[in-house]
Simulated assay, not measured.
Amino acid sequence: METINQTGVTNFLLMGFTEDADLQSLLFGLLLPMYLVTITGNLLIILAITSDSHLHTPMYFFLSNLSFADIGFTSTTIPKTLVNIHTQNKAITFAGCITQMCFFIVFGCLDNLLLTAMAYDRFVAICHPLRYTVIMTPRFCGLLALGSWMISVMGSLSEVLTVLRLSFCANTKIPHFFCDLPEVLKLACSDTLINNIIVYSATIVLAVFPLTGILFSYSQVFSSIRRISAAGGKYKAFSTCASHLLVVSLFYGTGLGVYLSSVATVSSKMSLIASVVYTMVTPMLNPFIYSLRNGDMKGAIRRLLSNMGPLTEQTMAGP
């Protein structure tokens, strides 16, 4: 099979979902509103938290970071997909593909680590309530967020930079709607053993370990909730965890679905569907999950929107 050096690769082809023009128009009509809702919803969460002093607590600090990560996670893949569908051009440059992979992994890992930090926050709040303010200080929360960013960036660079050493086959068609690292590695004609070792190691460190931490935290939380005698106390304690548990279930459930389906089936159609849920639906639902189940968040969003109304009218009226 003909091979070309990595420096000779100019474009990859993102094959996307379908060749049918009518279905592509339908997909464009579905993805664009979903993307706009995702950006708007997560921006509202960030603005509501930053503008309301009552929400300047560790839980909402991590939530605002999670919303920012969701915006980046979705914006890494969906705008390029929309452009490709609209222009009927499937090409993405080699540099663009590397960049997309890098940011996709950064924001995906950041989601993992922030969800773990939020689980730890709930663990301390329910299992050690008297020490909560001592443990979850603003400095400690800032260090957790900064550490999550640093680990995500280093993990992403370790996975992506090794792709630059590969030679690729003349066939550069990626059966996906974005540059997914496992799919790109399948196109390589040189040995990918080192790449696979790094990918599996990074998956263990950046996905399995955080998930283990989340499960351990909630095992302790549920154990503490069971020991609460009052029914009202049990409900209140569980309600503070319900939104986060639902988000964790969606994120890890669909994420695992992507990779299990790609391993279990030769066809990539199921993997594509799972990837849409993983990269699009989950970030879109997160603001609704956290706002609809949270009275403080709903109140903050209402106050934000009410304050934005007069400001908009003044802007339109002019000087």
Rank of each mutant, 00 (worst) to 15 (best):
E2G: 03
T3I: 06
I4M: 15
N5P: 07
F12A: 02
L13S: 08
A21W: 13
A21R: 14
S25G: 11
L27G: 00
G29Q: 08
Y35W: 06
L36H: 07
G41M: 00
N42Q: 05
L43F: 12
L47C: 15
T57P: 02
P58W: 01
P58S: 05
M59T: 09
F61T: 10
F62A: 12
L63R: 04
D70V: 07
I71V: 10
G72W: 00
T74H: 08
P79Q: 02
L82N: 03
H86C: 09
C102T: 11
F103R: 07
L110T: 02
D111M: 15
L115A: 03
L115M: 08
M118P: 05
A119M: 01
Y120H: 09
A125L: 04
A125P: 00
I126R: 02
I126L: 09
C127Y: 00
L130I: 05
V134W: 06
V134Y: 07
T137P: 04
P138I: 03
R139H: 14
C141L: 15
G142M: 03
G142W: 04
L143M: 15
L144C: 08
W149F: 08
I151Q: 06
S156K: 11
S156N: 10
L157V: 12
V160L: 00
L161N: 12
T162A: 12
V163G: 14
L164T: 10
F168V: 00
A170L: 14
I174N: 01
P175N: 05
H176F: 06
C179N: 06
D180R: 03
L181W: 08
L181E: 11
L185F: 01
K186T: 04
C189P: 03
C189E: 01
S190W: 02
T192P: 07
N195E: 13
N196E: 12
I197T: 02
I198P: 01
I198Q: 04
V199F: 13
A202Q: 03
V205I: 11
V208A: 14
T212F: 11
G213T: 10
I214S: 00
F216D: 11
S217T: 02
S217Q: 04
Q220Y: 13
I225G: 04
S229D: 15
A230T: 15
G232S: 13
G233M: 06
K236Q: 10
K236H: 08
K236G: 02
S239V: 12
S249F: 04
Y252L: 03
G253W: 11
L256F: 14
Y259D: 14
S261D: 02
A264I: 11
T265Q: 11
S267H: 14
A274L: 07
A274S: 08
V276R: 10
V277G: 14
V277Q: 12
Y278F: 14
M284N: 07
Y290T: 07
K298S: 06
L305T: 09
L305K: 13
S306T: 10
N307K: 13
M308N: 09
G309Y: 13
T315G: 15
